[in-house]
């Protein structure tokens, strides 16, 4: 028996919108402490890791650990039928090949249930150890989205360089080059507007902008984003979900051959 009631249903809608274009289908792993998902894109270049802890749910019941394979495009179609103010409940029964999404309007005058077929997914699960990163940049998520979008109109790849001067995003393409430098800026009215650079050692790495732009679909989930880099590891782009967990994207770098 599985029953999860999320009063802020729009959160689940936003989560799906942020990952459905990167990953086609994924196993949702439910346990008593919450649910998680890990899935790579089809080219094995990028990975999404999602965690939503049980404390963030109004009601959370999961009698035994269970994994449900879902097509994210189909799940997104169903969640789009929920209103932004709706309460969403996810229900499942042991051994069933379906999952039910129930949508309740805030005034309880409209109740809908959508039953979705589950699928068997043979997904590769990667072990991602905790790492010490050379540099961690925390910045407004909208600013990061803007930079990725702007640079993608010039080039295909972004070089992200962190020094004690700041963080630099650079690209080059047929029409020219672009460099955007952000300096650490903590003297802002609201903490979410700050750019904070924690640097142990300078680092400079190259990534495909196509993936970075895909990650920025998670912007509505959080006012801030953190970008963690080490020269010998994939970059981690993390959007924290207030009180509940996170969506993390991992992206393998492009390296000089």
């Amino acid at each position: 028996m599985l029953e999860l009631r999320l009063v802020q249903g729009s959160l689940l809608k936003k989560v799906l919108e942020s990952i459905k274009d990167l990953v086609n289908d994924a196993n949702f792993d439910f346990s008593s402490s919450g649910f998680s998902l890990q899935s790579m894109d089809s080219s094995h270049v990028a990975l999404v890791a999602l965690l939503l802890k049980s404390e963030g749910f109004e009601h959370y019941r999961c009698d035994r650990n269970t994994s449900m394979g879902m097509n994210l495009g189909n799940m997104s179609k169903m969640l789009k039928c929920a209103g932004n103010d709706d309460i969403i409940t996810i229900k499942g029964d042991d051994g069933s090949d379906t999952v039910t999404f129930m949508f309740e309007s805030p005034t309880q005058d409209k109740i809908a249930d959508f039953e979705m077929k589950l699928m068997d997914i043979d997904s590769e699960h990667l072990g991602i150890p905790e790492a010490e990163y050379h540099a961690i940049v925390k910045m407004p998520s909208a600013e990061f989205a803007r930079i990725c979008k702007d640079l993608a109109s010039i080039g295909d790849t972004v070089v992200i360089s962190v020094t004690k001067e700041g963080v630099k995003f650079s690209t080059r393409g047929d029409i020219g080059t672009a460099n955007i430098v952000l300096r650490q800026n903590t003297t802002v009215d609201k903490p979410e507007d700050a750019t904070v650079i924690e640097m142990n050692e300078p680092v400079s790495m190259t990534f495909a902008l196509r993936y970075m732009n895909s990650f920025t679909k998670a912007t509505p989930l959080s006012n801030t984003v953190t970008i963690s880099m080490s020269p010998d590891l994939p970059v981690v782009v993390e959007y924290k979900i207030a009180e509940m967990g996170y969506v993390r994207f991992y992206l393998a770098p492009k390296m000089e051959e």
Binding site: S43, L47, Y250, A252, E257
Partner: peptide
């Protein structure tokens, strides 16, 4: 020339 690496070159299957 830059080549795109894969995550499986950094992380092992769990």
């Amino acid at each position: 020339k830059r080549v795109q690496l894969r995550l499986t070159e950094f992380y092992r299957s769990a």
